[in-house]
Design a binder for these strands. Sequence first.
DNA 1: AACTTAGCCAACCGCGCGGGC
DNA 2: AGCCCGCGCGGTTGGCTAAGT
Length: 364
Amino acid sequence: MGRAPCCDKANVKKGPWSPEEDATLKAYIEKHGTGGNWIALPQKIGLKRCGKSCRLRWLNYLRPNIKHGGFTEEEDNIICSLYISIGSRWSIIAAQLPGRTDNDIKNYWNTRLKKKLLGRRKQAQMNRISSTGQDQKYVANGADENALQNLSNSALERLQLHMQLQSLQNPFSFYNNPALWPNKLNPLQEKIIQQTLQNLNKSQNNTSLMLPGLGQNLELLEHSAISVRLQGQELENSDSSNIIALNPGNTHLDSAVAPKSNVIQQPDSISGCHHHSISTTFTQAEIDNFLNSKASSFLSSDDNNQMAEFDGLKEMDGSRDSLIWWSNEMDTNSASSNSWDSSSLLQQSEGLLYQEYAPLGYNM
DNA sequence: AACTTAGCCAACCGCGCGGGC
DNA sequence: AGCCCGCGCGGTTGGCTAAGT
């Protein structure tokens, strides 16, 4: 049995709102408020509209101090940063932009901002191809290419760093326990994990080190603007229950462990912190394969339905895994609560990601 | 001038969540 | 504990307009 409709579809008007309808709705809400019941509101004021439609009209158009169009560069950057951080959570993004609605931002992103981003990547790829005429490993080639490369590199690096971090905190964690791994890993992910584990074995006792990767041509860490710092005290006191799933929707993994991280994510150094970093190299083909891989090859079949978000980010290319990584971090930090601390979110996002991407040519 | 295509944006739709009963 | 219902969210659609042919 399906869900009961929220209103009598046959007796409600659909389509664009007339000025009269707008005036009626606006006048009533300004005088009486919504009354806490959108469904009942249209009947009260004699509008042949669905309550949801009234709510949408009010929130997206009639509400005071709504801004339309004319997004500033600063707003662009905030949107990009937050999208990279948390994905398509438009309401949260909108909360950071006074006067903007989630719908407005969503439309703006889908129709313009995303294309700008993709356009840059496309252009960079064209540059790369034209410079050599063959599939090749990443080679810096102009400002855009650097920026895009950095985006990919730092995203991959985050995945690595995060895995390393989790392993350091918990030797029995997901990354050190193949029994907990998904049935099938993407080759690149397999490589990341294997290398990370190898490197970890070498690095356990060092407070600051950089380890070489397998390949020769792509230094992921070289362009990185972030570092992960572990507070020594916290590590020692860690309850060793922190692991993180590879994908944010992987609930069976998420729920199998305590989703709380001890990562210190502040970009500013904290006195007494240890500094760990790992560098790994990947070929262009490996990265492309990773970015374009299908969810089904990445997860067991039971998990396919969890990958919608993953696929949805595909076109973000290099930033996609960053998003997965980061949103996971956000999710764990928010302790599965729906009430986001927007201010800390923006602080985190701007503190790391915005800081990282903005200087790299993502001022649009 | 007529037609097609692309871009943009308002509005709709369905689902998940949470509160109330 | 389970059901119902309203709210809020993100994805999608449809219509209008501008640009291109």
